[in-house]
Design a binder for these strands. Sequence first.
DNA 1: AATGAATGAGAGTTCATTCAT
DNA 2: GATGAATGAACTCTCATTCAT
Lengths: 208, 208, 208, 208
Amino acid sequence: MPRVRMAVAARKKPVQARSEQTVLAILTATIQVLLIAGLERLTTTRVSERAGVSVGTLYQYFPNKESLLATVLERHLLAVVEAVEGACASSKGKSAEAMATAVVGAFVAAKFESVATSMALYSVASEVQGAAIVARMSRQSQIALCDMLATAADVRFSDLGTISFVIGTAVVGPVQSLLSAGTAPIEVHALRAHLTSMVTAYLYKMAD
Amino acid sequence: MPRVRMAVAARKKPVQARSEQTVLAILTATIQVLLIAGLERLTTTRVSERAGVSVGTLYQYFPNKESLLATVLERHLLAVVEAVEGACASSKGKSAEAMATAVVGAFVAAKFESVATSMALYSVASEVQGAAIVARMSRQSQIALCDMLATAADVRFSDLGTISFVIGTAVVGPVQSLLSAGTAPIEVHALRAHLTSMVTAYLYKMAD
Amino acid sequence: MPRVRMAVAARKKPVQARSEQTVLAILTATIQVLLIAGLERLTTTRVSERAGVSVGTLYQYFPNKESLLATVLERHLLAVVEAVEGACASSKGKSAEAMATAVVGAFVAAKFESVATSMALYSVASEVQGAAIVARMSRQSQIALCDMLATAADVRFSDLGTISFVIGTAVVGPVQSLLSAGTAPIEVHALRAHLTSMVTAYLYKMAD
Amino acid sequence: MPRVRMAVAARKKPVQARSEQTVLAILTATIQVLLIAGLERLTTTRVSERAGVSVGTLYQYFPNKESLLATVLERHLLAVVEAVEGACASSKGKSAEAMATAVVGAFVAAKFESVATSMALYSVASEVQGAAIVARMSRQSQIALCDMLATAADVRFSDLGTISFVIGTAVVGPVQSLLSAGTAPIEVHALRAHLTSMVTAYLYKMAD
DNA sequence: AATGAATGAGAGTTCATTCAT
DNA sequence: GATGAATGAACTCTCATTCAT
């Protein structure tokens, strides 16, 4: 998708600077339009207007609308996945409880750091194209979870695949639900505490 | 939507029967189109064609496309919620483990009973209108969870609101993820077992 | 146009009574819908609903929507023309001033007797079909004017055709304008007086 | 040269020129379709086809069908009103007869200069939106008539409001009737002569 | 590179009319 | 005769995308 951008990146410094700035403006505008107007009313013209460029310019950087949305979604999910991967990497060899605390903390922090973006992308994620990206990212973080869990200091797991799948997907629901709820039914720190407890309890229960 | 039907109800029995049949055909066709073409390519014409009726007929029963999708979504979620409510009602006074087993079992069964519908409605649920319906249904089942958990024979909970929120939303993620995954990473019965374990472990950990 | 109605009329008394009642209800409903919703939003369904009959019944009396509107328009214009014809007939042999007074008075009275209908039909009159009816009715009253003017006691006219055309069409504008004006710029009786003066002055000026 | 600043100014000229041409083509096509097909069969597609542009282009310049028709109507009426206003302005201080001759002449000339347009817009004028435009334009020319009549050299009027209302609306009927009549019942110059006589006679009769 | 006017397929929706009951 | 569900052609309007400038 970001074919053009990458191709240009390696060559011209000033051009790249301008391009990068333009691309960023477009991506930011996309999220804003998503929040203000919703996915259904998101049009390429509206995005380009908000970004302060012409439609033609938008199409110079993104081959079509779909790729624009895919890029926005991917960038967001990548940030979340990287946060999770980071937590996994630095928790290797620790106790299962420490692992649960680190991973849940990283995930919740990443999601709530850019609440607006997270909310805006909720609908994009369930489009055909979006679901695939979500699945890919999901798999990626499950691998990180697997790697981490195998090094747990206090316990040993026989079915790492299923366990990491369950953990990786179970924390998403509550967070998304809290994000999209108009009036928050519970506090963020309460959610983090509960999810940590849940994952911890689950891990020790599944230990051999 | 059943506005016309109700108004007519007192007068024409056979007419109503045909109407109901027509409405059902349209709802079924909607799910099929959702599965085959996706939300983006779902058009009222496509739905009516597949239902074997004219577009005009579709609009005789649904004021607009949005209401059609909302109806389909609501019907499905209502079935799921009712399954959960049923499990909650018949598990009152039992142990926390029995409760977890019953609720997770009911939820997974309901979702996998109509896999096609569940998958098809994934994208509808994240539309503006859809999110509200999901939220409403979610709240409804959390109330049932609350009522049930308060009667647990072996444990007592201090923060029922948060606990039922977490349980109600945490099981959704893994199930949805499994449904939308092209190739199943794990088995359904394994998922049910793990989710049951997770909820059970979580409940006993949160007990006072 | 009123084919069906006439055909039925000659045969069955009770049927005719019911028919006439139904037809009248439909015609009345048409005017009401015209006033409430306007020509653009007038649908046969809306008219039949308001008339308290089914669409099918409407189509039993009027072959199509156009004929319904034509009938309503024709009935109204016929009443106006008959009023003018009556005034013309009973003013034969009188002075030009008496003629002007009688004709203008009859026309204004007829138009303002059913203000609602007059207003409602304004738009119908300019449809293709409507324009023809208006033209026909216009011609009919011009003939009456001609016949009357030829018998004027105090003056004699050489170009009766043109004079009756001008009189017949000149009084329409001010009346219609007053009807459609939201806030009346002048009073009805002032309008009648002015129009009478205008026609009188015109007639004596055109006298040989 | 300072590209950015000039860019807007320099670009807009040719672009605007083309736009103006496109808009004109659409307006002309609207009148043609109105004449050929009538208001009922005037569709935005039909208009754009005749204008040699795509529907999308039409909607780039007119937000909806209604505004297209309103623009066409307003342009025509404005021309007529300006003709009347011109005649009024240059007849100030003259005799009432000179005033009548000038105003009737200007009105008839303006209407018959663009016979096609005049005829085409007859039906548009009676639409909801159209009636308001007609009323506004009507008022505007009545003001001009008032101003002029107040300066009459040979007579003085006590009820200028009513008189200008009657004159302004009375001349419309005969002209419109002549325009829409398939076969002309009278000649244009005869109409002008008679209307002038009528208005002149009326004015002197209403003089104090 | 940037622009934005032009495109036109296609979407949602309406409504005059029919016809089985 | 009366009914009103069903029909589907036709309409208005949108918007992703292109391309001459």
